[in-house]
């Protein structure tokens, strides 16, 4: 691919319930070794999990910033209960670091102060992006299910307004959120009585069809794709279409190596085909998919046209 050294690589927030220890180790390695420019932190999926790792946030932020990374705090995708409203308000009140808003409650609390628009905000089109920019948005992460022509049109509009534009290029796609906890349900419990059973599945709980085909992953109230999204072969076109930031979602694989593969490909050090083969190896048993981008079923993997 053409050399794209200006394109920023970002690391999305951890979707799963990783232990405080696992998170500390993870971000220490990211700070020291991963060639990502920006890191999103914070609990986006389940407000019950936040107390387990909140106390570590200031140290993690400092560690990442010392390593030259930009840190952004992401707000909850679902805001209903008092503690969720409070958590959203508290984040929205902060001056630094930057915040990424994932629920309209966060937009309300943030007012016109600068903020980023998260992937749960449904910024599907130019009209919505223009509205959001007028309300103080500086950056927008597009929904994972958007196809290439819509990404290009949205990116063009966002860039014209001076916004950064981000697309998820690696990791499971978020397919749904719910008020009900499906991890708790699988274990015969309710959300209030979940005993944090989701911690047992650091890469999500696999669901298989009754004829034994992998289909979805459960992460508490969230449902994710079974396959990892992989848009590495499409990165050159994303960038040509105006996308400025490429998002890697943390999975239980070697994310430092994943980031390195993307950076090497973007910088032109490793040919796209070779980089993509490395990504497949790093992803282990997870299938790779790019169907959403190509306007077909999300789980599908469409062979790229000849790499640029």
């Amino acid at each position: 691919m053409a050399v794209n050294t200006m394109t920023k690589l970002t690391l999305g927030p951890i979707a799963y319930h990783w232990s405080a220890d696992a998170r500390r180790d993870f971000y220490a390695r990211i700070a020291d070794e991963a060639p990502v420019d920006e890191v999103y932190l914070g609990e986006v999926i389940c407000s019950k999990r936040a107390p387990f790792h909140e106390a570590d946030l200031p140290a993690t932020i400092e560690r990442l910033e010392r390593a030259g990374k930009t840190v952004i705090l992401s707000t909850l995708a679902e805001v209903m209960l008092k503690r969720e409203r409070k958590a959203t308000e508290d984040l929205a009140a902060m001056d630094t670091p930057e915040i990424e808003v994932n629920n309209a409650a966060g937009l309300y609390a943030r007012g016109k102060r600068p903020h980023r628009i998260g992937p749960f905000m449904n910024a599907y089109n130019d009209a919505t992006i223009a509205w959001m920019a007028g309300q103080g948005a500086t950056h927008v992460c597009l929904p994972a299910e958007m196809p290439a022509p819509a990404i290009a049109a949205a990116a063009q509009a966002a860039v014209a307004l001076g916004l950064g534009v981000e697309v998820q290029v690696f990791g499971r796609a978020s397919l749904a959120v719910s008020a009900r906890c499906y991890h708790a349900r699988a274990h015969g419990r309710t959300k209030d009585n979940c005993q944090f059973v989701c911690e047992e599945d650091p890469d999500g709980m696999p669901l298989r069809t009754r004829d034994d085909r992998p289909i979805l992953r459960v992460n508490g109230i969230q449902t994710l794709s079974e396959s990892y999204v992989d848009l590495l072969p499409e990165a050159a076109r994303l960038i040509a279409d105006g996308v400025t930031h490429l998002r890697l979602m943390p999975q239980a694989v070697d994310m430092v190596a994943v980031a390195q593969v993307f950076r090497d490909a973007l910088d032109g050090r490793v040919p796209t085909g070779e980089a993509d083969a490395r990504l497949a190896t790093l992803s282990g048993h997870a299938g790779l998919s790019n169907g959403f981008y190509h306007g077909t079923a999300g789980y599908r993997r469409i062979s790229a046209a000849a790499p640029a």
Binding site: A144, A173, L175, A176, V177, A297
Partner: peptide
């Protein structure tokens, strides 16, 4: 699922 936040159908 939370309406307006569900891509299950598109995935399959």
């Amino acid at each position: 699922m939370v309406e307006g936040r569900c891509s299950l159908t598109n995935y399959l």
